[in-house]
Amino acid sequence: MALLDIRDLDLRIARGRELLPVVQGVSLAVEENETLGIVGESGCGKSLTALAIMGLLEGSVVRIAGGSVHFRGRDLLALSPDERRRVMGDQMAMIFQEPMTSLNPVYRVGDQIREAILQHRRMSRKQARDRALDLLELVRIPDPLRRIDSFPHQMSGGQRQRVMIAMALACDPKLLIADEPTTALDVTVQKEVLELMRSLQARNGMSIVLISHDLGVVSEICDKVAVMYRGKIVEQASTSTLFSNMSHPYTLGLLGSIPSTDHDVEWLDAIPGRVPTLDEAVPGCAFHPRCFAANESCRSADPSASAVSPAHIVRCHFPQGSSS
């Protein structure tokens, strides 16, 4: 049984009286100790999917319209808010794209980590502080004894993201959801943070859902990859299968837009146009206006997901590289 098993997740955004579909029929599974990457351009529904898994959509304009999210055998969507909160921050934790603003500016970072510990563990405040100190050391913050009493504004973006990771690991979660954890960081810091996450995973034995718009980042540390486009998973496979046999034109386009490391950050603009907004209706395959392989059937019918090989699922009328 998979640690996390998502079936047919449907999310809608309430706008006026309408409910606009924003994530449709997303199915994903993450095994223990496995790393799943979710890639796609900005606006494809990656963050909303992550927030739905974590249980952070409550009170927002986004509704969960269908599907199930099983975590360690329990359907999280069927839990009461109290039961849900017992999972959040304990067995499942999340870090965010915005390290600069994700910590509370008025509390010392040590106190913020301690709060995460004491929410789920019974121990004295002194013990929790010691644990926070260990965590800061674990995420390789230099001089943790001093840093534990720093305020967030006294730290760099990279250090704040390390604090966020320390906080997420406070209760040794089974699953860490990382929503573009390195996007806002310098390239060198990006590498360090990714490396840190990988080593912590090996040490703690946890699963990771890593969200990124950068196929390069994902290829480095993920066991398998789901590619999202406009609320749907268009291709899903193990990392090695995906890179040896890329089938969806969108995935190929993303590969083309991996920033080449040789010449600083240079985007090869491989996909023309942009992701259609929520209220732009696109008949047929949502990607067809931007697709080099599109023809009449792509304009009229939305392709369903099919397996090009076992455990390699593609949502395309004309998967590339396979038979034709």
């Binding site: 974590m54 909160r85 921050g89 994700s102």
Partner: peptide, 10 residues
Amino acid sequence: DHVRTARAKG
């Protein structure tokens, strides 16, 4: 954003 972090702690 930091309020979202607080909620994510449970």
